Computed example of a mutant assay.
Amino acid sequence: MRHFGQLGAEVRRRLFHLEPQSFDRRSDAPVLAAALGATLYCPATRPALAADVRRQAARGAVSMVLCLEDAIADSQVRAAEANLLTQLARLAAGPEDDLPLLFVRVRTAEQIGDLTRRLGAAARLLSGYVLPKFTEATGPGYLERLAEAEAALGQRLFGMPVLESPELAHLERRRSELLGVAEVLAKHRERVLAVRLGVTDLCAAYGLRRSPELTAYELPLVASAIGDVVNVLGRTDGTGFTLTGPVWEYFPLPGGGPELDGLRRELELDLANGLLGKTCVHPSQLPVVHARTVVSHEEYRDASDILRREAGGVSASDYRNKMNEAGPHRRWAERVLRRAAAFGVARAGVGFAELLSAVRGG
Results as ranks from 00 to 15, higher is better:
F103A: 13
A44H: 04
L267A: 02
A79D: 15
N231C: 13
L157G: 04
S224I: 03
L88C: 06
H282E: 01
G120P: 03
V195C: 01
L68V: 12
T215F: 01
G245N: 06
D98W: 01
M160F: 00
V162L: 00
F352C: 08
L36E: 04
D98I: 01
R264E: 12
A147Y: 07
L101N: 14
L68Q: 04
F134W: 02
Y206E: 13
P328R: 14
G8A: 05
W332S: 05
E213S: 13
Y142C: 06
L219D: 07
E167M: 14
E190Q: 14
A303Y: 03
C67A: 09
E172L: 11
H170G: 02
D270T: 01
N231E: 14
A341D: 09
F343H: 01
A342D: 03
V295C: 10
R265L: 07
G120H: 02
G245R: 00
D97L: 07
G327C: 10
P43T: 07
A58Y: 02
G327Q: 11
A121M: 02
R338D: 15
I306F: 00
V281M: 09
A311D: 15
R173C: 08
S75W: 02
Y250I: 09
A223Y: 02
S357P: 09
V281K: 06
L49H: 04
N273M: 06
K322Q: 15
A147Q: 15
A93D: 14
A71K: 04
G94R: 13
D270V: 01
K187P: 11
P161V: 00
D261E: 12
W248S: 04
L49Q: 06
V162C: 00
P100K: 03
V294A: 07
A82T: 08
T215G: 05
Q111V: 12
I306M: 01
D305H: 09
E299I: 04
T108I: 05
S27L: 07
R55S: 15
A50Q: 08
L163R: 01
N231W: 14
P140F: 06
H290L: 11
G238Y: 07
A29W: 05
R78N: 15
R292K: 12
T293R: 09
R145A: 15
A61C: 15
V199Q: 12
G238F: 03
T116D: 05
P132Q: 01
P161L: 00
R25A: 08
L193K: 08
P161T: 00
T45A: 10
Q21S: 11
L99P: 01
T215V: 04
D302H: 07
R173V: 04
V350L: 01
V195H: 00
L193V: 11
T116M: 06
L126Q: 06
Y300C: 09
S304M: 10
A151K: 15
G5R: 03
V289H: 06
T86L: 13
E213T: 11
L355V: 02
L337E: 09
A44R: 07
R13L: 02
F103M: 13
